[in-house]
């Protein structure tokens, strides 16, 4: 048993040091309390719904979210709009469909099964409209950035005047948290930019938090199910481990007495 504890600790230490060495570049991101962190972490529904509003009204004019469908908005563990609300949301978008019987493409109101409508036809069009920089697809953006939610949250609030000695080209902005500090996206948020229907005051900080929460859900839509199942699985494994441990003691006692 003693040697087992040693093995166990050794494994944990190695794994922790590994994960630390991965996060080689440590940046001090802005901190906030994320409701979805921790063993029982869940999304804040209000934040998700507000975050969706920020995404649609602000981000979606440049950033696509091509792996999400409107039906996701009403699914469990997400913003949990009612199905009726989600249908209304979907129908407010024009979706290109076709070809019809005459072989022509046509537009129709969106349905729940449709994917989020993209702002540009393709990457080239997106680049052409944004000075050569492709606004990245936001479906898995949180997972595609080293700092995750903290990075996105900080970036949205990290716009500042450039320090002395740094000159910026036309269409380039200074951001404290951007890799290399130069970003081609202008500060997207300003106080009161959107009007929340639930009465929450739309400060930049609030909007950053809401939209980041929304992006976290978009990247990891089964996070709540994962946390719940994980807790059950680990409790189960511990119970079984205890049972097996005592069974093992019992079985091995047969020969311990012989020896």
């Amino acid at each position: 048993m003693k040697i087992f504890c040693k093995i166990f600790t050794a494994i944990i230490i190695v794994l922790i040091s590994l994960s630390n060495s991965y996060a080689a570049e440590k940046v001090n991101y802005l901190k906030t309390n994320w409701s979805f962190k921790g063993l029982f972490g869940k999304f804040d529904r209000g934040a998700l719904q507000r975050g969706y509003q920020v995404y649609t009204e602000v981000c979606s004019s440049c950033h696509s979210m091509k792996y999400l469908s409107y039906r996701n908005l009403s699914e469990q563990g997400g913003p949990e709009f009612t199905v009726a609300q989600a249908k209304v949301i979907a129908a407010s978008f024009e979706v290109k469909d076709g070809p019809n019987a005459d072989g022509e493409m046509f537009t129709r109101p969106g349905k729940l099964s449709d994917k989020f409508v993209m702002p540009y036809e393709n990457i080239k069009a997106a680049q052409a409209a944004n000075g050569g920089a492709y606004p990245p697809d936001m479906s898995v953006l949180v997972k595609a950035r080293g700092g995750g939610v903290d990075y996105i949250y900080s970036l949205l609030q990290g716009y500042d005047d450039p320090p002395v000695g740094i000159t910026l080209d036309e269409g380039v902005y200074y951001n404290k948290y951007m890799y290399g500090n130069k970003i081609k996206m202008a500060s997207p948020l300003s106080d009161g930019l959107v009007e929340y229907s639930d009465g929450t005051i739309a400060t930049v900080e609030q909007m950053s938090k809401d939209v980041t929460t929304f992006l976290m859900w978009a990247a990891e839509p089964h996070l709540e199910a994962r946390h719940q199942m994980g807790f059950k699985a680990i409790v189960y494994l511990i119970i079984l481990t205890i049972l097996v441990y005592f069974s093992m003691k019992k079985i091995w006692s047969r020969i311990e007495t012989e020896v």
């Binding site: 991965y22 995750g148 994980g230 494994l237 481990t241 093992m248």
Partner: peptide, 28 residues
């Protein structure tokens, strides 16, 4: 039974990664 006991301990570590930090060993 001894292998089984060790395997279960191993699975607890495994489960922790899968359910709580599934992307930490990967690269963003």
């Amino acid at each position: 039974i001894k292998d089984g006991f060790a395997l279960l301990m191993f699975m607890i570590v495994f489960a922790f990664f899968v359910f709580y930090t599934p992307n930490i060993l990967g690269h963003a």
